[in-house]
Amino acid sequence: MPLTEVVFYGRGGQGAVTAANLLASAALKSGNEGVQAFPLFGAERRGAPVKAFARISDTKIYLRSQIYFPDIVVILDTGIMDTVNVTSGLKEEGTVLMNTPRSPEEIDMPFRVATVDATGIAIENKILVGGIPVVNTPIIGALPKLMDNLTIGAVREAIIERWGKNAGEKNADAAEKAYEGVRIK
């Protein structure tokens, strides 16, 4: 794949920016020469809709602008879909990955849809911060099923590198659960 562009939608505090960074880090470990991750630049507020971006390429990336026509959109909180058009600019052959217990068949969108219950996995695996389930690490685990240039091993490695052995393993296990549990229409 020459260039894969991913947009993350979530709420401030959910770790959308961290998710983008993890994806870039895992993509680098998967052997991609060009990787990039950045937030939508602004003043972040907890709970407000946030957006983050990641680019992955087998060659060096020169683009510095935001992503307007993504290949994949990742939705950490489906609640924002009431106010934000998350498929805006998504390529026709693009993919939507949603954090939801629902099956992809239940979701009416003219795109390839993948679903994974990241919140459920976080609760089950006891990855909570201040009582709130951590959804960004599990949802990243679903991505290797949707992309050719990313491996679940690299995702595990990136998570453990960031959070150390104990917390890292726990989060990596959650990512692996999402990898196994993601459903694609």
Partner: peptide, 12 residues
């Protein structure tokens, strides 16, 4: 270098 566009963007 450019604020945010580089300063807050992760690259290798």
């Amino acid at each position: 270098y450019d604020g945010f566009i580089l300063s807050h963007t992760s690259m290798p």
